[in-house]
């Protein structure tokens, strides 16, 4: 199990099928000993009881579990918790609180960008990351010219948000909410 040149990167082994590791969630450091099978999503929801990140499909097909890892959005259901040693995780609980909402959360309320609310934390985490990705110049499927700066427009937002399903069908309102935040930033 050990490798001579990188001992410090090994989790402390309690039993071969579980591991001890540390990660930071919304700025708070946690050391966990978990079954290796535990996904990042289940570590958050079941072990840290941070249930804002949702489980809609558990197979990377809905986006309800979207969280930011070191600033990058991923599906927490398709990532093993043990692989996040040392990572900074941001979940909806860290985005904003009831008495000081993040502008994206406020925009979702303003534009009724949800109904049942189950996909909402994932939509909001994704929406924040989408604006960063456009600013950083990451291309998308609808980017017309790959070699010029990315234009922030409705088509870009819709395409980039397409990994977050909303069965209540609030897409048109989510677009308005994201545009409100984008316009306030620019």
């Amino acid at each position: 199990m050990n490798s001579s040149n990188n001992v410090e990167r090994h989790p402390k082994t309690v039993n071969p099928n579980s591991s001890t590791f540390s990660l930071s969630v919304n700025g708070e450091r946690h050391t966990l000993t978990l079954d290796n099978r535990t996904t990042l999503l289940d570590a958050l929801r079941e072990h840290l009881q941070l249930t804002g990140s949702k489980k809609g499909c558990d197979h990377g097909q809905c986006g309800a579990c979207t969280v930011l890892v070191n600033g990058v959005r991923i599906n927490a259901c398709l990532s093993l918790a043990v692989m996040h040693e040392g990572d900074d995780i941001a979940t909806i609980e860290g985005v904003g609180e009831a008495d000081h909402l993040d502008p994206m959360q406020q925009a979702f309320v303003d534009h009724d960008a949800f109904q049942c609310g189950y996909c909402t934390p994932g939509q909001i985490c994704s929406a924040k990351a989408v604006l960063e990705e456009i600013q950083a110049g990451l291309p998308s499927h609808v980017t017309y010219d790959l070699n010029t700066p990315i234009e922030l427009n409705d088509a870009e937002i819709r395409e980039r948000m397409s990994g977050n399903l909303c069965r209540c069908g609030a897409y048109a309102n989510i677009l308005k909410a994201i545009n409100q935040v984008a316009e306030a930033r620019s």
Partner: peptide, 9 residues
Amino acid sequence: DGILKVTGR
């Protein structure tokens, strides 16, 4: 119930 939903609570 909007604030509860956008904060994941």
